[in-house]
Structures are given as structure tokens and as C-alpha cells.
Amino acid sequence: MFNLDNSTMIWHARLEGELTIYHAFELYQALSSANMGEAPLDLDLGQVSLVDSSGVQLLVLLKKVFARHHQELRIVTCSEAVKDAVGLFGLNGFFGLTAVPVTKGTSE
């Protein structure tokens, strides 16, 4: 799920499937054990099929954690489901999503 690119010193992470309450704990564990924060993160959300509030909340947490470390978190690709949810919560600006390409076909 996570991969630190040695040449650029950027984390790459790819979340897939459902970012919902049923997977929240499992995702949280994976994310928190990765000990991130000392390098920027490029997040690929292109294969996320379903997001609920807990999913958005987890992304907000990630963003906050990185902000605390003064590191950047960028969403580099996102699915329609992500775009939809983030948009509904008025968080497009917060995540800098406006310019991020949207993958088709994996959303609800």
C-alpha cells in the first residue's frame, strides 16, 4: 500500500475499494503504522469505489497529520466517488482536488 520513492523521497500510497466505516479501523491501522509524516505523500485514490463520512474523515486526519509535520499531502488521482464525497463536504479546496483528474468507472 505504501512505498517510499528513494530517488524523490516522496511517499506513494494507493487506497483501493471501499473507504467506509466497515474498513475504517483496518485502514487506520495500516496508515498509522506506516510512520509517515517525515516526507510528502502522493495519494492515489483512483480505485476507490465507495466513500462514506468515515472515509473522508480519515483523509482529513491524514491531511492534518501531514500539516502538523509541515509536509504536503497531494491527492494525485481520485475516483468519482471520492470527488463526490469531498465535494459534498465542501473540502475540494482543502484537499486541492479541483485540478485532480478523475478516474471513470470505479465510482458508484
Binding site: 475504517a24 485502514l27 496508515l31 498509522s32 474523515q57 482529513v60 486526519l61 497529520v65
Partner: peptide, 15 residues
């Protein structure tokens, strides 16, 4: 919502 993993409960609602 906390800004660190330790205090965060992924199933709680902070919104």
C-alpha cells in the same frame, strides 16, 4: 478531530 493518529478513533465521528 485530533491531528495525530494516536488520539484518533477511526470509527468515531468528529464532523
Amino acid at each position: 478531530m485530533p491531528d495525530n493518529f494516536e488520539k484518533f478513533d477511526p470509527e468515531a465521528c468528529y464532523l
